[in-house]
Amino acid sequence: MNIFRFLGDMTHLISILILLLKIYATKSCSGISLKTQELYALVFLARYLDLFTDFISVYNSVMKVVFIASSLAIVWCMRRHRVVRRSYDKELDTFRHYFLVAACLALALLVQEKFTFLEVLWAFSIYLEAVAILPQLVLLQRSGNVDNLTGQYVFFLGAYRAFYILNWIYRYFTETHFSRWISCVSGLVQTALYADFFYYYFISWKNNSKLQLPA
């Protein structure tokens, strides 16, 4: 564990807490893409299958449970909660995310570290996480103005993988057998997808204005 990875995990956790706060405090999920949340639930379920087989550390196991539980709770809330689900922008959240799932699964079958069930699903989860934010970014562009909590949620979500890139650079220089090129390439793509969001987020922060994404 190094400071970059720890900061990355904490940033990721903060993004989830901000989303939970938004849904719980405002009893609304307007501006949030259910499809992105479903993709994240799939990412965590596919990646953390080793929860019961590979014990790494208490921290690792606890965080896996937190990520799986929170992502499922958010999907449940947006689908079933009688008050929250009424504020879901169903007509705006129209990204065909099943194509993302199919493409990532096909890629994972072609490119993975070892052609085993767990490794294919692990690579699938890495590829899927890289593109999972797309429905959310499309929804933000369509819904025009973005409320503060949603903007902060997406910002922290993008920042966490940037810390992981620093972690991979650090591990590359400090560990002999470190080769996580699947994670690195996907992580770079994932962070790059946030580039324009980060730009508009910075502009809104500098001008102290409302976050606006161009349609």
Partner: peptide, 10 residues
């Protein structure tokens, strides 16, 4: 440091 078995990152 040997590369840990499996994936040790979240």
């Amino acid at each position: 440091k040997e590369k840990p078995q499996g994936h040790d990152e979240l």
